[in-house]
Simulated scan of single mutants.
Amino acid sequence: MEMPVEIVGRSPAFLIVAETAADIAAREALLDRAMGPKRRKKSSEKLRRGRRPSEGLAFVARDASGAVTGTVRMWDVVLGEGGQAALLLGPLAVDPALKNAGIGSALMRHAVAEAARLGHTAILLVGDAPYYGRFGFSAAETGALAMPGPYERHRLLALELADGALNDVQGTLKAAGRKLKAPVALTVAA
């Protein structure tokens, strides 16, 4: 069972915990504030649409009042046609009012550690190399990989959690993992 991680540092204390269904509205509002309305048009979103995050790999940061101040999720993907399993990280977002408070870094470290603990071998993301490089991500192993739809090739980054996990991988990332359940239609008898 995952234990909450309390982080105290440059900012007010916050807690990193597993995301719950009760966090969905707050997480979506936070993502809208942090990333804007175009976030739903990104290539990464195509891999997330209609899927649930990888089991045990969706987290939120809460402040002392319990409000959601940050979020990160990981998603199951397959590297190329019939390729190996990996994770796609994203989105990572922090309330814009709390930028540079260490929340994003703490969420990243926690998510990567949990992915390793759960036995995953590689994580990919689309993001800024200067930011994600400090967590070990680079474009060194992504040259033969592609995202569906438009993206900036130099921003496709990866982190091996097991040595050699990305050796000889190629192809376009494909969604995998658990699908969202379709809403149940209610019929009313006349």
Rank of each mutant, 00 (worst) to 15 (best):
L161T: 06
A113M: 04
F137P: 05
R10A: 15
D76W: 04
P130Y: 00
R51A: 13
V126A: 12
Q170D: 03
K99C: 02
L107W: 05
V169Q: 14
A22Y: 00
A113V: 05
A61G: 01
S11V: 07
K38Q: 13
I16S: 05
A29Q: 01
A93E: 12
K38T: 10
Y131Q: 07
L15F: 10
S11G: 15
V5A: 08
A175C: 13
N167S: 07
A129E: 15
G9R: 05
K179G: 08
V169M: 06
R73L: 13
P96W: 03
E160F: 10
R10C: 14
G70I: 08
I123D: 12
L87C: 08
L156Q: 04
A140K: 02
A115Q: 06
T69Y: 04
P148R: 07
A162V: 13
A93P: 05
M1V: 02
L173E: 14
L31G: 01
P148E: 10
H154L: 09
Q84N: 08
H154K: 11
K41E: 14
P37K: 07
K179P: 04
R27G: 00
S54K: 04
A85D: 15
W75N: 13
V8F: 09
G133A: 07
L166C: 02
A115L: 07
G82A: 12
R10D: 14
